[in-house]
Design a protein around this nucleic acid. Structure first.
Length: 188
DNA sequence: ATAGCGATGTTCT
DNA sequence: GAACATCGCTATA
């Protein structure tokens, strides 16, 4: 057992904060790419009106009802993929949306997947494209699959804001950002 | 720098 | 039909 499994098995807000600064690794397409997570959002279970799990299981959200550490991938606006880390005890269906990060490994492959050299993973759809994450990985394990969370978090200043792009439960400040010194993402 | 807007398809009312 | 956990292009400053 490790600290990550314990973190993901706990309450979703604590898990979201604890995921900041950790390495998200992808080994899709025989290339290793990785980012340091700097922006995440917590989504609760049935009691969170903004959560995809609000209203119970559906074909789309079934991965959210799996064990902690499951990857939940859904299509956003018909165009982009968005990736979540399932948290909490099985059955609670809470998850952390991965919204942004800093390029840590495989910069050349990430630029190739993105088709550009800037704004490589500063948004949920950009992050999944940078790492090659698609709906094919929905339901896979983030502790042992092709996409994993690894290592200990790097330190930084954590800020919280309301979640982006939602209208329900807009008062919850469940978006968390990590301020770390870097060229791509200077601390503001 | 910020604002407006179309694309695109699945889910929900 | 409408909404949607978004992105990138364009215009204006």
């Amino acid at each position: 057992m490790n600290d990550l499994a314990a973190l993901l098995g706990g309450p979703v807000v604590a898990a979201a904060r604890g995921l900041l600064g950790r390495l998200l690794v992808s080994e899709i397409g025989a290339v290793r790419t990785a980012v340091i997570l700097t922006e995440v959002e917590a989504y609760g279970g049935g009691d969170d009106p903004a959560s995809h799990a609000h209203g119970g299981p559906t074909p789309r959200n079934q991965a959210m009802f799996g064990p902690p550490g499951t990857l939940y991938v859904y299509r956003s606006y018909g165009v982009h993929w968005c990736a979540n880390v399932v948290c909490g005890p099985a059955g609670i269906a809470s998850a952390v949306l991965l919204r942004g990060g800093l390029v840590a490994e495989g910069a050349a492959a990430i630029r190739r997947r993105r088709g550009r050299t800037d704004h490589l993973c500063d948004g949920p759809g950009k992050l999944t494209q940078a790492l090659g994450i698609t709906g094919a990985l929905d339901g896979s394990s983030l502790l042992a699959g092709l996409v994993r969370v690894e290592g200990a978090p790097i330190p930084g200043r954590v800020r919280s804001t309301p979640r982006v792009g939602i209208t329900r439960a807009a008062g919850r400040r469940w978006r968390f950002l990590l301020g770390v010194a870097s060229v791509d993402n200077p601390v503001t």
